[in-house]
């Protein structure tokens, strides 16, 4: 599905990337508040769901070639984080849903896990 549909499903605000959300395709997602776990287990092209708000979120997205970030639980990313995302062209969404609800809505709509289980 397109990122614009993710936005609708989650009642999300677009913090950055309004002009690309109709183009970015989302098939898988990874949810975590531990960046090392994302680095260890996520595959590329996943949408990243997290409650973390610091710039390392964006660095992680860049290192892994993820497609974008949804900040959950109403978290507002730090200004530096948004600035960095703008420079790198990484779309950012924000939802008031908790992480469980966010995952549930996306899963129900056909988004699959970036990785089902760890080895």
């Amino acid at each position: 599905m397109k990122l614009s549909e993710v936005k609708k499903l989650l009642n999300a605000d677009v913090i950055f990337g309004e002009e690309v959300i109709d183009q970015v395709e989302v098939e898988t997602a990874f949810a975590s508040d531990l960046l090392s776990d994302v680095l260890a287990y996520s595959k590329e092209n996943a949408l990243f769901l997290t409650g973390l708000t610091n710039p390392q979120v964006i660095r992680t997205v860049e290192v892994l070639d993820l497609v974008g970030v949804v900040f959950v639980r109403g978290k507002v990313p730090q200004m530096e984080t948004v600035e960095l995302a703008k420079r790198k062209g990484i779309p950012l969404l924000r939802t008031k849903c908790i992480l469980f609800e966010t995952c549930g809505r996306l899963y129900g709509a056909g988004i699959k896990a970036s990785r089902i289980m760890v080895d």
Binding site: N54, P55, Q56, I58, R59, E62, V63, L64, D65
Partner: peptide, 30 residues
């Protein structure tokens, strides 16, 4: 802390320009 990760993404871009296989780029970047 603010710049943590910057060098790695620079390295990643560099490897990409050099046309290393995507898997190698990913592993080196991580």
């Amino acid at each position: 802390f603010f710049n943590a990760g910057r060098t790695s993404t620079t390295i990643k871009r560099f490897l990409r320009e050099k046309e290393y296989p995507p898997q190698v780029i990913q592993r080196v970047a991580i």
